[in-house]
């Protein structure tokens, strides 16, 4: 009896071999162990009839258990091999896989993050400020004269006598300069408000990205270089930029920056209204009056500032025709920018 049990243990020792076997070896193992004529276990089972009833019971139970184990191991290996081989008879592998709901960031968030990340590459950190502001921070500290036509472009929602919803992210320039000594290098994303009625390209609320760099020795050349770097990183390495004189009370010199149209590569198309150029941002060297208003020595420090509309960048980049789509929150719209999946 002991010999028989030892033989069974020896056969059980073949289990790891089964788990590693390839298809041909597996067939050999099945014949060798369980073959009807010459299988090793079959031979033991055949002997059972000749044994004492007590021994027969013990050995029989062990042998049958082992038979079950071996069969299970052999079958499992067959299935595993079939799976590895991609057994087309078993599954139609063109059937769809199991999915989960897929979340996604709003396209505006993606654009804002991308812009901020590009500026991070050239040393800009991310700052924010409140959406309700004083007239002083929103206008007058930024060198807007009282009763000046420059205010016309910034029709505002007022909350009280001298409190309004910020019309641009520029008041955060003031807050930053008043609390941090130069050097300052920040980008400031945020929601801004203007009393414009909704149409395909206007919204009373939109997202702006402001930038501010102030230090000793910052020049117009640094200003142009930094923004050109941004344009090439955002729109592609072949992008050309064009700066032209403009007017903002808080910058001097002031400039508008256009980038060669990323859709038509500057040849002219509906996106760039056949001009080959896309107006991207307003910018300039920080006006010394702004530095003075914030207690910064304007003789010693210079800097540059810029502001751009995130919706506009997203519309150009993704071909979105109407600014209202950003606020509609139709899940079919949101999903288009959430990556592949449901």
């Amino acid at each position: 009896m002991r010999d028989l049990l030892a033989s069974l243990d020896g056969l059980r020792g073949r289990l790891p071999e089964i788990a590693q076997a390839d298809a041909m070896h597996l067939q050999q193992l099945r014949t060798e162990l369980l073959g009807r004529k010459a299988g090793a276990l079959t031979a033991i089972l055949k002997q059972l009839a000749t044994l004492d009833p007590e021994v027969r019971r013990t050995v029989g139970a062990a042998a049958n258990a082992l038979k079950g184990e071996l069969e299970a191991a052999l079958d499992a290996r067959v299935r595993a091999l079939a799976e590895i081989a991609g057994d087309e008879a078993a599954h139609d592998l063109t059937m769809p896989g199991r999915t989960a709901w897929r979340g996604g960031l709003h396209v505006l968030t993606q654009v804002v993050d991308e812009v901020c990340d590009i500026f991070r590459e050239v040393g800009f950190t991310r700052a924010v400020g409140p959406e309700a502001e004083t007239e002083r921070n929103n206008f007058f500290a930024l060198n807007f004269p009282v009763d000046h036509p420059a205010l016309d472009a910034q029709e505002s929602f007022y909350l009280g006598d001298d409190v309004l919803l910020r019309t641009h992210t520029s008041p955060v320039q003031i807050r930053t300069l008043e609390t941090h000594p130069p050097p300052v290098r920040v980008v400031i994303p945020g929601q801004v408000y203007r009393r414009d009625t909704f149409d395909p390209s206007h919204s009373p609320v939109f997202e702006q990205i402001e930038g501010l760099a102030v230090d000793e020795g910052i020049t117009f050349v640094d200003f142009k270089a930094t923004l050109a770097y941004f344009a090439r990183r955002f729109f592609g390495p072949r992008t050309r930029v064009r700066f032209s004189p403009s007017f903002f009370p808080f910058t001097e010199p002031s400039a508008d920056m256009a980038a060669s149209c990323s859709v038509c590569d500057g040849r002219g198309c509906p996106t760039c209204k056949q001009t080959g150029w896309l107006e991207i941002l307003g910018s300039g060297m920080v006006h010394p009056a702004v530095l003075e208003n914030c207690g910064v020595d304007a003789e010693r420090y210079t800097g540059f500032a810029f502001g751009m509309g995130a919706q506009r960048l997203a519309m150009v980049r993704h071909g979105i025709p109407d600014i209202r789509l950003f606020f509609e929150s139709d899940v079919r719209f949101l999903r288009q920018f959430a990556g592949r999946g449901r």
Partner: peptide, 21 residues
């Protein structure tokens, strides 16, 4: 404006940390 060069020069890191929010 286009007559000025636009080569990125060295710069110093700012004193403003990322806004925690």
């Amino acid at each position: 404006y286009d007559s000025f060069p636009s080569e990125l020069g060295p710069y110093r890191l700012g004193t403003v940390p990322d806004a925690p929010v």
